[in-house]
Design a protein around this nucleic acid. Sequence first.
DNA 1: CATTCCCTATACCCATGAGTAGCTGTGTTC
DNA 2: GAACACAGCTACTCATGGGTATAGGGAATG
Lengths: 213, 213
Amino acid sequence: MTAAPSPFRSTRSTPEEREEKRAALLLAAVRMFNERGFHATSLEDVAASLGVTKPVIYHHLGNKDQVLFECVRIGLAELQVAAAHAAKEPGTGFDRLKSFLRRYAEVIMGDFGRCVIRTSDEALSADARRKFRALKREIDQALRAMIEAAAADGSAAVKDVRTTAFAFAGALNWPARWHQPDGPVSASLIATELVDVLCGGIEPRERFRTTAR
Amino acid sequence: MTAAPSPFRSTRSTPEEREEKRAALLLAAVRMFNERGFHATSLEDVAASLGVTKPVIYHHLGNKDQVLFECVRIGLAELQVAAAHAAKEPGTGFDRLKSFLRRYAEVIMGDFGRCVIRTSDEALSADARRKFRALKREIDQALRAMIEAAAADGSAAVKDVRTTAFAFAGALNWPARWHQPDGPVSASLIATELVDVLCGGIEPRERFRTTAR
DNA sequence: CATTCCCTATACCCATGAGTAGCTGTGTTC
DNA sequence: GAACACAGCTACTCATGGGTATAGGGAATG
């Protein structure tokens, strides 16, 4: 009825317009996946939220598996960018690690990052599942490498890299479940606080123990 | 064809036998939910894994929502038992907190605990979802109370209770995603190591800094 | 102006699995 | 031993949603 201000006009598109449509569809899809869950979201609903119909999604993105995989692929690519960016920063290995952890948490609270965490392997087809796991493994290895680097230059005290990586990843992934994107407290603040807790621990130190009020 | 050694004989059952059947059905269901995911598991498959048919599940457990909710209810009850048990232990508040955290992680690596974490709210009906959230909230409050107690008696150094609780819960919930129950490394070892990392942090302390080899 | 090529909508097929009605066989009870 | 109650099975309905065939319609191209 009312003309939607969307990029979907019925005409031949330039490559840029195609990409714009793809992006709009993916964003609508990932948001609905995050909100309702993948299985409770029909592609019909996703299309309808943009004022178009189901075949448009199949035309631009492929089947439901491909849509979901593309969403998590983007989220994992964001995490890889975060890792690459942090690795180039100055300071000690520990500084770089903390920077990565903060960026990691912020990505996880974004649309595509949340989808990475909320998507369980079983939701994907066998083929996509394999790729999904491989990408997640790359992130895990990047995290372990940065923990190892921080331990190697003496700027962090790490007993077991593997356990540390799992603990940190778990703590930073968890906001994907509880954080409200439109809530009062910003993602970057949460990220900073979480990283502080993880790095500092809660065992009392000299400077704390003296001032127990 | 071959007679199954299951508790399902076609006869009138005593209350104990009924309970035994319920338990067997729930265990089969939760294991299949954990392995394949809730949506990818049909009640027919669950029943077939015990050599019975779908109506048996409806007879003993109710519909699929009720089955899932019962699974997460059991897992959350195990966590409450862990909290109650830890609260009675001797030592400092920090000792009791660490004990709770270890038990928490072990429960999460069990059948029903895993289901609690792997189940997202959207999978449940509106009614069950409300109860699910209320139970999870109770666990969260118990965790926060123990962190506060440890901070109050000076045995732990806590900046922000809320953030600490989220970080710890996330790190301890995460094994529900990656831990292999039949793998080489035991749940209790993982629990201990995770709690060590969380409590100790990785910021270098005096005793570590001197022995950088 | 006609043709062609995309793009989108309509309308459909079909597999899956939740949930149910009713039958049957078996032990229990009077 | 006859009626009964219960547990489980067979066989079904039906809603949902993934995926597709096909038609229409507008812009570029000659």
